[in-house]
């Protein structure tokens, strides 16, 4: 069995965590990987905590449960770290990537006893400055790819541009801003 990377996304309904997990799966597919991208569907309310998942592997993936021992956790909404056990099952040697303007070490006291790696990226500022609105998912996607080093960055950026052209076919004016947000997050992620 080749090495499989498992990622769990925590966000709030409306922030695009599900879309981010699907975009990550698509980009990893473009680099020749076997992929899974799936959300955990609950009562779909704006603002309610939601979870989404990715598996990325060099071999066919047959497991179809949720992910209980992720290699990486992405927290799309900083307020979740005190209300949801976002680090549950996180593997030793894994890492958490949090949407926050703070430095990683400032958040450590909130992650009771956690000794692993923490990365932060200010997805709110990036999103508001580049898109004019708060959509944290694309910056978080850039950050997790940077942190995991899952794929060649150029291939990833190209794949995302292709996805955006497809996804935003009816509103092409948002493509450029999303691309800027993606690249900026890859530059600005803290903790590397």
């Amino acid at each position: 069995m080749g090495k499989m990377v498992e990622i769990r996304w925590h966000g709030r309904g409306g922030q695009g965590a599900k879309t981010a997990s699907l975009l990550l799966a698509e980009a990893a597919f473009d680099t020749g990987k076997f992929i899974q991208g799936f959300p955990e569907y609950g009562p779909e309310r704006m603002g309610a905590p939601i979870t989404a998942y990715n598996r990325i592997s060099d071999e066919k993936i047959t497991i179809h449960s949720n992910i209980y021992e992720p290699d990486y956790v992405v927290v799309v909404d900083e307020t979740l770290i005190t209300s949801v056990d976002v680090l549950a099952g996180l593997k030793e040697g894994g890492a958490v990537v949090i949407n926050s303007p703070k430095d990683p070490e400032e958040l450590r006291p909130l992650l009771k006893g956690y000794e692993g790696k923490i990365y932060t990226v200010d997805a709110r500022t990036i999103s508001v400055e580049e898109l004019g609105r708060y959509f944290p998912n694309v910056p978080m996607l850039g950050a997790i790819v940077k942190v995991t080093n899952l794929m060649d960055e150029d291939i990833f950026v190209d794949a995302m541009e292709k996805s955006f052209h497809h996804k935003f076919a009816t509103k092409p004016q948002v493509i450029e801003g999303n691309m800027r947000a993606l690249k900026r997050a890859m530059q600005e992620v803290k903790g590397l």
Partner: peptide, 12 residues
């Protein structure tokens, strides 16, 4: 086939 698990998960 299985709702959500298969119907909504993106795979190869």
């Amino acid at each position: 086939f299985d709702g959500f698990i298969t119907s909504h998960a993106v795979e190869n």
